[in-house]
Design a protein around this nucleic acid. Structure first.
Length: 852
RNA sequence: GCGGGUGUGGUGGAAUGGUAGACACACCAGACUUAAAAUCUGUUGGGCGAAUGCCCGUGGGGGUUCGAGUCCCCCCACCCGCACCA
């Protein structure tokens, strides 16, 4: 008997697919197109199980769509710019470019054995000058269209290394290399005006019906639309030019509970006042220390500084409020100034308690509540509110009404106006780093900031750079910066900032439609292939990458690079879970700190380390990471079991949107199953072709049900459920005594249904059974509706919602007859005990419930 | 701090508001074998019972419903994101 030899089978079929060229996508107006895309990988140098899972899911969709008559585009590329390449250059020497391209070569070599249906002819890396040159062209077009502007922004500054740090390089407020306390610094930087599109991006979320609701919700919260009142406090004896302090509030209904005005340490007024106030200057400097992340700012202790300045309440000019500088107020949001209402805001309450400011209640939680405020009362939007002073004579039913009514009231009194604001900030794209796409502008002493001419693109990165000192090597390069001004021709300097890598990934999906063109896109190709029909990637990209891409699609449409129909570039989105694994430490080890052992170093069942016999501890499954050593190398799995086993396993055990735990026993089981399928094929091949069988119909009935269920499963990302059905079908086939013809039909259908998941094994079975051509290009099997319906159904009988028996009835029996039979059943008779049922619910084909 | 998510047997998980635990792992028993491995068959949520059966059970507590793992409210635990990581 022959045995299943995945290594040989897989290599053979991959060669066959290559020869047939079936994955090369060409425009074909006669077929419906289908564009399936997995988020492209960062070339770290090694594929991991997360990649295997992500690309296998995309491959299942791509192969399924191919067999249902679609013209499929399924490309792959590399998100190749970014810090790790520079870090590697600094840590181990070498050059980011060499490191990156070396990694790409390695990873491509590791991905090919997976047997993915990828059109490799479209492959590119974002660090290819041919790609980022087109990106620079887009930048220039966006700039001309007014979609990009320059302004100041804060960065993390390491005062010892004299360099800008990424958030992830700031650890506990200190630089990761120098250990120096990080400062916030202002730099002039480029920004995409994404905030101009906040309203539109927010509104269009509603049309993204095939996106997960949670991603839409996360984006909605991120954009953060709010309706509020913008108004000004007039100041008393303030410096020139600061007669008023503009504030924005979403809670104008609590204006009569104001007790202080707070401004950001970066507010112009704070900066003006600190000139004559050393203590305030010191306070502001303290606030500028620490990281720039939202989490750090919001969890930092609330600190304030009384500037001594006073303002007048807009509704009572005798009422004076102090102006504090406070560390929790962001200059980027609203006007950088707020009024504090401690009675109805938890943060303001904390602040007012700390600095002994008045706490004035305007609402009470109930009519007879104690008016003495011991904690902030924040009415929910739908809460009934009980008015307690404030705007005389105004009374509102709920918190929500109160806000809208307060805006009307204030506008009527000439105090400010209602405005809609967004939390979304403009997208800063400048990075003070080498390994990114150079921003194609020139700084000229005469002409100022001048865009580079398109014919001079790409502005290529110089290769001869040094990483021995921190900071941006482009700044130190002796000649690269020198260039004639594109406007006046005099000697000028290039900008040395490069683009955020999120820019690279914000349009790559469009580039795949014409990857070699000398314009960013080609109209006919973009029109044919866009949009991405199915996009697949990690939930960690739910906000930034996906929001930036949506903005880019709009910007590219405005500048003529994408058709209007591609304004939302991803028709359907699927966010898949991670691959996790147990962690192993020595006995008494720490779950978070280790030290850790690799899975192959331990004997899991004996709970010992293999070489030393040392006892080990097993900790729960978490995301695979190098630091925890809980990684399983896909290459090892492929070498031992083959790619089909790896593919089958990552699809089988968990729903795709959830995390999947990699277990050695699970992988082993997947391998055993594929062996079983192979053996069944082998057995059927050896059968007597003419021998009579029995129960052919039963086998074919299961077959058609499986076709139906697997088709539904694949269409709805229910891969794990589809695989469960395939297990059941396999078991039925294994036990079947049906005729050769029926069994052959069954095993060939099994191969077709498995083909998207385990394509190599499926091809081999198909060929063994004499199937025509490749199973990959064979049309998807169709379930025969007649075979799906059963003549009789088993209905559970419930009494008061508890299962008490069952009846078997013809599937098409009318409701009243079912009811009769149910009532006559032993279980119901017993429960009725001679009485009458109060109510009988018959759900046809489902259940009968008798209420007694 | 803010935002999002998850919670079902020993384990991963299944279940358009309609028989909770499909399918798989693990365990146990059996077949085959001199033996082991491989393979095949069967059992397996907990409790009570000789038994047709009965009671309990989807993180905890309430609610809506003829019927709730599923919908609503409150609570607990864990995970993810937070704008210069990709």
């Amino acid at each position: 008997m022959a045995t299943y030899t995945p290594a040989e089978i897989e290599a053979r079929w991959q060669t066959a697919w290559d020869k047939a060229g079936i994955f090369t996508a060409k425009r074909d107006e006669t077929k419906p197109k289908y564009y399936v895309l997995e988020m492209f990988p960062y070339p770290s140098g090694r594929i991991h199980m997360g990649h295997v899972r992500n690309y296998t899911m995309g491959d299942v969709i791509a192969r399924y769509k191919m067999s249902t008559g679609h013209n499929v585009l399924h490309p792959m590329g590399w998100d190749a710019f970014g810090m790790p390449a520079e870090n590697a250059a600094m840590a181990i020497g070498g050059h980011p470019k060499d490191w990156t391209y070396g990694n790409i070569k390695d990873m491509r070599g590791q991905m090919k054995p997976l047997g993915l249906s990828i059109d490799w002819s479209r492959e590119f890396a974002t660090c290819d000058p041919e790609y980022y040159g087109q990106q620079q062209a887009l930048f220039l077009d966006f700039l001309e269209a007014g979609l990009i502007h320059r302004k100041n922004a804060q960065v993390n500054w390491d005062p010892v290394d004299m360099t800008v740090l990424a958030n992830e390089q700031v650890i506990d407020g200190k630089g990761w290399r120098s250990g120096a306390e990080v400062e916030k610094r202002d730099l002039t930087q480029w920004f995409f005006k994404i905030s101009d599109y906040a309203g539109e991006l927010n509104e269009a979320l509603q049309g993204l019906e095939n996106w997960p609701a949670k991603v839409r919700l996360m984006q909605e919260n991120w954009i953060g639309e709010s309706r509020g009142l913008q108004f000004a406090f007039s100041t008393i004896d303030a410096p020139d030019g600061f007669d008023r302090v503009e504030v924005y509030t979403t809670r104008p209904d609590t204006l009569m509970g104001a007790s202080f005005v707070g401004i950001s340490p970066d507010h112009p007024l704070a900066k003006q006042l600190e000139k004559d106030n050393a203590d305030l200057a010191a306070f502001n400097a303290e606030c500028r220390k620490g990281g720039t992340t939202a989490a750090e700012i919001e969890t930092a202790e609330k600190m304030g500084f009384d500037t001594g300045l006073r303002v007048r309440h807009p509704f009572d000019t005798d009422w004076e409020l102090p102006v504090y500088v406070a560390n929790f107020i962001l200059m980027d949001y609203g006007t950088g100034a707020i009024f504090g209402c401690p009675a109805h805001d938890e943060r303001d309450f904390e602040f007012a308690t700390k600095y002994a400011l008045p706490i004035i209640s305007t609402y009470l939680p109930s009519e007879d509540a104690d008016p003495k405020v011991t904690e902030a009362y924040v009415p929910a939007k739908t809460d009934k509110v009980f008015y307690n002073g404030g705007f005389a004579g105004e009374a509102w039913q709920t918190g929500n009404d109160a806000i809208a009514a307060a805006i009307d009231f204030c506008e009527g009194k000439g105090v400010g106006q209602g405005v809609t604001k967004y939390r979304l900030r403009d997208w800063g794209l400048s990075r003070q780093r080498y390994w990114g796409a150079p921003i194609p502008v020139v700084h000229c002493d005469t002409c100022g900031v001048v865009p580079e001419k398109k014919e001079n693109l790409p502005v290529e990165l110089p290769y001869d750079v040094e990483f021995d000192t921190p900071g941006n090597p482009l700044d130190r390069h002796p000649t690269w910066r020198d260039t004639p001004c594109p406007s006046c021709g005099k000697p000028a300097k290039r900008e040395t900032d490069t683009m955020d890598t999120f820019v690279d990934s914000s349009w790559y999906f469009a580039r795949f439609t014409s990857p070699r063109a000398d314009t960013p896109t080609v109209a006919e190709d973009a029109a044919y292939w866009m949009n991405v029909d199915q996009y697949i990637g990690g939930i960690e990209h739910a906000i930034l990458h996906l929001l930036y891409s949506r903005f880019f699609a709009r910007a590219m449409q405005i500048t003529g690079h994408l058709p209007e129909s591609a304004i939302e570039p991803f028709d359907a989105l699927f966010t898949q879970g991670m691959v996790t694994h147990e962690c192993y430490t020595p006995e008494g080890g720490d779950e978070k700190r280790g030290p850790f052992f690799f899975p192959e170093e331990v004997d899991r069942d004996a709970r010992v380390k293999k070489d030393t016999g040392e006892k080990i501890e097993i900790f729960s499954s978490v995301k695979m990471s190098k630091s925890k050593k809980n990684v399983v190398d896909p290459l090892g799995i492929i070498a031992n079991y083959g790619a089909d086993t790896a593919r089958w396993f990552v699809l089988s055990d968990s729903p795709p949107e959830r995390d999947v735990e990699w277990t050695a026993s699970g992988a082993e089981a997947a391998y055993k199953h594929l062996n079983r399928v192979w053996n069944i094929c082998d057995r059927i091949g050896a059968m007597d072709k003419d021998a009579a069988g029995k129960d052919d119909d039963a086998l074919l009935k299961i077959m058609h049900k499986t076709i139906h269920d697997v088709t539904m499963g694949v269409e709805s990302f229910g891969f794990n459920a589809a695989i469960a059905k395939l297990y059941a079908f396999t078991a039925a086939l294994q036990k079947s005594k049906a005729s050769h013809a029926a069994q052959r039909e069954a095993v060939m259908t099994l191969a077709q249904l498995m083909a998207p998941m385990t394509p190599h094994l499926a091809e081999d079975i198909w060929a063994h059974q004499g199937g025509e051509g490749l199973v990959t290009t064979a049309p998807w099997p169709k379930a025969d509706d007649k075979m799906l319906v059963d003549d009789t159904v088993t209905l559970p009988i419930q009494v008061n919602g508890k299962r008490r028996g069952e009846i078997e009835v013809p599937a098409d029996m009318p409701k009243d007859e079912v009811e009769k039979i149910a009532l006559a059943s032993q279980a119901v008779q017993k429960a009725l005990d001679g009485g009458q049922p109060k109510k009988v619910i018959v759900v046809p084909g489902r259940i009968v419930n008798v209420v007694v």
